[in-house]
Design a binder for these strands. Sequence first.
DNA 1: CTGAAAGCGCTTACAG
DNA 2: CTGAAAGCGCTTACAG
Lengths: 343, 343
Amino acid sequence: MAKKVSINDLAMAAGVSKTLVSMVLNGKARENGISPDTEARVIEIAKKLNYQPNSFARGLRLGKSNTIGLILPDISNTFYAILARSVEDIARKNNYSVIMSSSDESQESEANLLRLMLDKQADGIILASTLNNDKAIRDILPEKYPLILVDREWKDTSFPVVKVDNFNATKQATEYLISKGHTRISIMTIGPSHLSTQTDRIDGYKAGLEAHKIPVSHNLIVEIPHNDVERCICTSVFTWRSTNTMPTAIIAANNFIAKGCLNCIINNKLNIPEEVSLISFDDIELFHFSNPSVTAISQPVKEIGEKAFEELLARLKDSDYKMKNQVLPTDFIIRNSVSNIKK
Amino acid sequence: MAKKVSINDLAMAAGVSKTLVSMVLNGKARENGISPDTEARVIEIAKKLNYQPNSFARGLRLGKSNTIGLILPDISNTFYAILARSVEDIARKNNYSVIMSSSDESQESEANLLRLMLDKQADGIILASTLNNDKAIRDILPEKYPLILVDREWKDTSFPVVKVDNFNATKQATEYLISKGHTRISIMTIGPSHLSTQTDRIDGYKAGLEAHKIPVSHNLIVEIPHNDVERCICTSVFTWRSTNTMPTAIIAANNFIAKGCLNCIINNKLNIPEEVSLISFDDIELFHFSNPSVTAISQPVKEIGEKAFEELLARLKDSDYKMKNQVLPTDFIIRNSVSNIKK
DNA sequence: CTGAAAGCGCTTACAG
DNA sequence: CTGAAAGCGCTTACAG
């Protein structure tokens, strides 16, 4: 195949003007009263010459790219990989492309990525942010630029967000543990600690305890830095044991922590569920196969991506549309990592 | 922040021509003998006005986008998610963006994606193809368009490819089983069967058997359709058992099949490694946590992505550069899914 | 040391 | 029913 067929080449080949060609190709033959013959001929020739519109020229002219940006902490993490896939699928169905990137939990690279997406003329952005305030984002974005948050947000954000009901899901998990006789329940969250997913889960956990008049104990709420998960879990366990304050159950506030706990088993540092029960917030395939299999709160990952795109799309089609917040329900999958210690 | 600052705005603000602004912004002040004062002033103003070049205009003018396309069967599959991440990282380091998409093992959507990437003016493409011949691709691509295959290829392809030594890795795994006393060894591959990753692995398996004078038995080579993995594995096991031809070991030619085997355990349809030993081609995190943990051939996924990008980049920088094939070595990770049945 | 002009490929008023 | 012209924002000969 030869290179670069332009609208001009088509016009020459068809013996018409490029205006006409452009109209035909954009399905505006009808409304401009172009004769069906001419229309058919142009389409025919375009097909034969394997014409591909130059999206740069088009984008430059139209001021839109039919591309959206997707910024995630890390696409190689299963949760985000599935999210990315669902956005990709629904975007393609709607004739949008996606350009995605990983921020690696770095606020600085998130800012750079935002600029990059703008530079690439993304029409809108879906963002799982590691930031914690609107200003940092507003400073980068043009006014009224369409952006929607997924998964994570922060207090009083003015951006729309699609997320899961972190508070109630954790509250229910906590109450489930209580119903199995647990009262010394720990929650392990992942740092950085400002992430709304984590704080909301802590709040839900506290609410669960309070509903059953169980006092909240602050040395049962532990924050694990995201770059040293396993060692810190072991350290906590060690401290609890040596001070005789071991909880009977742990709620892992994300899948990394739950995996860290499983690794402690493998290294013979912890017994689940005999010594301590475990519930993971966020379910991944691994928890179905692990030993023990892990009771988990499952998020509708695919729906999160789809809803976010749908909101964004509505806004893209109508600049007056106000994107709505969406809070999606979770599932609770009971497996074998929680023991019943009711007397 | 306001919208759209163009090079013209900068020129006005600085009281110079846009030619000059463009030169300064592209670091060509020196070579065009622009006075340092002027240069500094322009840069200053660009910064103050938060200037972002319009990449469409730039791309249109320059005929290049600094974007590469990445087409994978499925980014939500761990193997490809990690590959995608590694390409993304190295691309960004080199000032390229990546636009990626999943083909879902469909030849038709792969073709569409190829066209899409061209349409988006990708400067080059990295492709894990589900196709099986050059022509289908050549028909879409402009002549001499830079494309490099990863993971999969086919006989006599003229495209460069970065992959793993499928043949020898499987041969070694087979010989490892033999060294543990296994002689009835099955290999389960995933359909569609033309994929080079699968055929090369079968060849390696045969070579391993032949090296030890073990005859190849065709009902031990089974192809599992990719959309019905678990049921077909169970069916095979059932057939083997009822005809008293059960193998003592299975080589799963990819991680889906190995997971399918693990699921058979969970559903009480198979005992590993007591009844049958298991080795997986392709190692995923899950195999470390599963019960039993799975002995696996581990691929240098990150390196595959990096090498592919490096080759592509070399070609992008020098259109005379001939991209080279790369065959990367694998690791063999011994875990607990293989029993020793030597008498 | 600096600027006017052309052109990348497209779409869209505008005119006939 | 169809075409000539302008312009999106940029870069690069070319001229001075």
